[in-house]
Design a binder for these strands. Structure first.
Lengths: 156, 156
DNA sequence: ATCAATGCAAATAATTTGCAAAAAG
DNA sequence: CTTTTTGCAAATTATTTGCATTGAT
């Protein structure tokens, strides 16, 4: 979980805060560093827990107040995989157009990109009189193990 | 709002209920007829309201207990457009693979299908060791009016 | 100094659930 | 008759908010 900090993403978020004339605080820093030190999808609750390891004073309220800033910046995206909680994906700084494939059984998630799909989308959307801002593509299916063994629940 | 009943979708849902050995009740019928008489996306709350026009005894609890049956049948899909409420899309009986493009300003939604996208998805997903069960593609962008006039909020 | 940001605890709002009564098969 | 389904009202749970205080600039 404690991977290397994505310096670029962090820098871009700090610029975003500056542009909006928002202040840097210890709590925000702890949250930001947490978010950009993982490539995992996380829930609001996990973000509270992890951020508190960096700064014990981070409150749930501040996390909930920071999440909209993160999504507004475009560096993090809110994802609904049909589970009880929303998930947040911190990988949009590096891969602004990536998609998700989720195993219906074990819930393993793989991210992938496709120029081809993006191009076709663009074409269709233009014909419909729109232009594209952002897209999200989620595929649900069966992973290898599920196909092979008929089950794969709870990890590989 | 009161369009023609989608008889096929209704029939398929009744079969689904039978398979699961669930009983037909007046309330369920009112809800089902409501769902398959519109092509609009609706919220749980709207479904309560509309169903009550057919049968005043339909309670909120029953609607909430019926929605999971509808989604489980695959004839209706839960959609998250990033708004406060979830939406339900009753058009999956006729178009099991359709996608959505949403205007970021007026929130106009257009549904579209693409064989090409489906084929590429399939190819990529196979390479990743998965097979496709279902997919959801949501594009956010600007509609014609928004592009032309710089604004289009609240309808056209 | 000034005003934004915070933690806390209370409020909100969608959804879920326990239970006794009603209705389906 | 038996078992499911219902409405009601209370419970649950994620998220939001008011407010007095703290902290950034």
């Amino acid at each position: 979980m404690a991977e290397t900090l994505n310096e670029d993403a962090k820098k871009r978020f700090l610029e975003f805060l500056e542009t909006k004339e928002l202040r840097m605080t210890g709590q925000r820093l702890a949250i930001i560093d947490t978010v950009f030190s993982t490539k995992e999808h996380f829930t609001a609750d996990q973000l509270v827990e992890w951020s508190r390891k960096r700064d014990r004073s981070v409150s749930r309220a501040t996390v909930y107040r920071t999440l909209p800033l993160l999504t507004e910046s475009g560096l993090v995206r809110e994802m609904d995989f049909g589970k009880e909680h929303k998930f947040y994906d911190p990988n949009y700084a590096d891969h602004p157009n990536h998609n998700h494939i989720i195993c219906k059984d074990c819930e393993k998630i793989v991210e992938f990109e496709s120029e081809k799909i993006a191009a076709i989308e663009d074409e269709i959307v233009h014909k419909l009189g729109f232009s594209v801002d952002s897209q999200r593509l989620q595929i649900t299916g069966s992973c290898d193990t599920l196909k092979r063994l008929g089950a794969c629940k709870h990890k590989h």
